[in-house]
């Protein structure tokens, strides 16, 4: 039994879309075994997880640069997964109150900064 994932790659990540790469993006369908996770999807596409930043699963924010609690998130047939390059952005005031997957919501709520920052790859003094 396999599941089919609708994958969207943006900016320079389009290179992982191979022949599907268009100007600035790629959209491809990836087949994975049932029970596959985001980590499995990345492995299948040969995309290092460090190269992605903002990530969405079915329109729910699942990762930010340096905060990736979605690696073990189990995917389902027909899911839409979108990976953004690290030069992309979504400032807090424009994402405040937007929907997230449970794993990310929990991760950000437990932080002292409540997930107000853009980038968590290098913990900042502020």
């Amino acid at each position: 039994m396999t599941i089919r994932i609708d994958v969207w790659l943006y900016g320079e990540l389009a290179k992982y879309g191979g022949e599907q790469a268009k100007a600035g993006f790629a959209n491809l369908q990836i087949n994975l075994p049932e029970g596959a996770t985001v980590a499995d999807l990345l492995t299948q596409m040969k995309m290092p997880t460090e190269e992605r930043g903002i990530t969405f699963i079915n329109g729910l924010l699942s990762a930010m640069p340096g905060v990736q609690p979605d690696l073990a998130h189990v995917l389902h047939d027909g899911d839409r997964v979108a990976f953004f390059h690290l030069r992309s952005m979504w400032p807090f005031q424009y994402r405040h109150g937007a929907s997230m997957i449970g794993e990310l919501a929990q991760e950000l709520t437990s932080r002292e900064d409540k997930g107000i920052h853009h980038d968590y790859r290098h913990e900042r003094s502020g």
Binding site: W8, Y10, F25, I54, F56, G59, L61, A82, F84, R87, S88, M89, W90, Y94, R95, A98, S99
Partner: peptide, 9 residues
């Protein structure tokens, strides 16, 4: 650069 982000969201 925000177009794709808000669209996915």
């Amino acid at each position: 650069v925000l177009i794709n982000i808000l669209n996915e969201a």
